[in-house]
């Protein structure tokens, strides 16, 4: 798993190389936009972690160039600009996800894994949530080494939330995921699945934002 890290700040870059490396990734670190551009043209990366504020060539034009060449390598954008327009611009230019600096390293790693999984479509990957491991290929969930059996809908719900770890997923979005547009779900069915899941994997593992939705922290 090769990750290209494009980050001009020495201290942030150094920390990310260590953290991503510990997550079994082979990290190539570029600190300059022009150099990164050359590396991207060379290809061969599974994931790009891109800081938008770069010397040489700015992150957005790098991203535009990459997508312009038809390269679909997943890109996680790191930005220090918290303006809404900056974020939207990043996603418009083809970023797959973004994180605002300063970020939580655990969350960065989780999002990197999610992007890799989505891009490769590989079923042999696993999502780890503390004591809980979700095996997407075997469709199994292990909690502290003990295998749990989950019904199909509970499993899908868990995976959906786990892939969006750290973000609130609105309840209507979960209903739509579980039932599609056609079948009208009872308004409390999501709640039923959530409480069933909580009984099996721990009450604190799924948090409720009452009136909005759910989140795996």
């Amino acid at each position: 798993m090769r990750i290209l890290l494009i980050e001009d700040d020495a201290i942030v870059g150094d920390a990310l190389v260590k953290s991503l490396g510990r997550d079994r990734a082979d990290v190539v670190w570029s600190r300059d936009g022009l150099e990164a551009e050359a590396m991207l043209r060379g290809g061969g990366f599974d994931l790009v972690v891109l800081d938008l504020g770069l010397p040489g060539q700015d992150g957005l034009s790098l991203l535009r160039g990459l997508r312009g060449r038809g390269d679909v390598t997943p890109v996680l954008v790191l930005t220090a600009r918290d303006g809404v327009e900056d974020r939207i611009r990043g996603l418009d230019h083809g970023a797959d996800d973004y994180l605002l600096k300063p970020f939580d390293t655990g969350e960065l790693l989780a999002r990197c894994r999610a992007l890799l999984r989505r891009a490769q479509g590989r079923g042999d990957d696993r999502i780890e949530l503390g004591q809980l491991t979700v095996d997407l290929q075997a469709h199994t969930v292990t909690l502290a080494g003990r295998v749990l059996t989950l019904p199909q809908k509970e499993f899908r719900l868990l995976v959906y939330l786990a892939e969006r770890r750290g973000r609130v997923v609105p309840k209507p979005q979960l209903e739509q995921m579980l039932y599609g547009w056609d079948e009208g779900a009872e308004s409390n069915t999501v709640e039923v699945y959530v409480s069933a899941l909580r009984r099996k994997i721990g009450a604190a593992s799924i948090r409720t934002l009452r009136g909005v939705g759910y989140m795996i922290p």
């Binding site: 942030v12 920390a15 790191l78 300063p102 939580d104």
Partner: peptide, 12 residues
């Protein structure tokens, strides 16, 4: 934000 990110990422 960048230096704050640096401290945080290093600590982590």
């Amino acid at each position: 934000r960048t230096p704050l990110a640096a401290i945080r990422a290093q600590v982590e």
